[in-house]
Write a protein that binds this DNA or RNA. Structure first.
Lengths: 107, 107
DNA sequence: CGAAACTATCGTCAATCGACGATAAACGAA
DNA sequence: TTCGTTTATCGTCGATTGACGATAGTTTCG
C-alpha cells in the first residue's frame, strides 16, 4: 500500500464532511479572510466549528493567520493539488474539453 | 447548508480511506475488469474488501457487473466529476497549464 | 490593570467506521 | 443435483468522529 494512498485518503478525509465543504466554499467566496463569521454561517456550535477548522488546518488545506484579536483563515491552494490530479486521472476519459471555456493557449 | 455540500462530502468520504484509493488505482491500471484479485492486492480480509467495494459502489464511483461466477468491477468515470470540478475551483489559480502534456485540440 | 471579544482545548456522549471470522448466497462445472 | 469457487452479509469489537457545553488562553480597548 503506497504512502501516497494514505496522503490522498487523508486529503479526502478532510473534505468528507458537509460542514467542511461549506467552510471551504465560504473561504473561496471571501476575498480576504474571515474569522468568527464562519460559526454563524455553518450554524454549529463554536467549538464544533473550531474543530472542523483544526482538521482543515491539519490537512494543510487552510491556513490561519493571527490578525488582531481574531484569526484570519484563508485557503491554501496547492494543498489539494495531489487529490485534484488524482481525480483528474480518474474522471476525464473525456475528449478535448480542457480548461475553462474561453481559456486557450497564449496566441 | 446546501445539499450539494452533502453530495460532495459523500464523494470525498468514499475516497477517505487508503484501501479504497488503492482499489481505484488498481481499477485505473486494469484494462478490463478485476474481481477477487483485488483482495490479495490490498492485503485485507475478503469481507473487508467486499465492504470497501460496497461503499465505492454505493457512491457510484465503481460499477459491478456479474461475469460468470465472479464479478467484474470497473470505474464509473463521471461519478467523481462534481468533486473534481469543486477541487478544480479551489486549487488552480495556476496559469495556463492545461490538460496533459501532448494533449491538444484536434487539429 | 480589568473587561470584553474571539478562539482553542477539554471532557463527555452517541454514532459511525474499519476490521475480522463465520456464514450464507449465487453461479458454473462435473 | 452436488461440489467448488467467488462474493455478499452478519455479528462483534475497538477506535475514531462529530457534537455539545464548559473552560482556559490571547489580544485589544477602556
Amino acid at each position: 500500500m503506497a504512502p501516497e494512498d494514505d496522503a490522498l485518503a487523508a486529503l479526502a478525509k478532510a473534505l468528507a464532511h458537509p460542514a467542511r465543504i461549506r467552510i471551504l466554499r465560504l473561504l473561496l467566496a471571501t476575498p480576504g479572510c474571515i474569522g468568527g463569521d464562519i460559526v454563524e454561517a455553518v450554524g454549529l456550535a463554536q467549538s464544533t466549528v473550531s474543530e472542523h477548522l483544526r482538521l482543515l488546518r491539519a490537512a494543510g488545506i487552510i491556513r490561519g493567520r493571527i490578525d488582531g484579536p481574531r484569526i484570519c483563515y484563508a485557503l491554501n491552494p496547492g494543498a489539494l493539488e495531489p487529490l485534484s490530479t488524482f481525480l483528474g486521472s480518474l474522471v476525464p476519459p473525456e475528449r478535448d474539453v480542457c480548461c475553462l471555456p474561453g481559456a486557450r493557449e497564449a496566441a
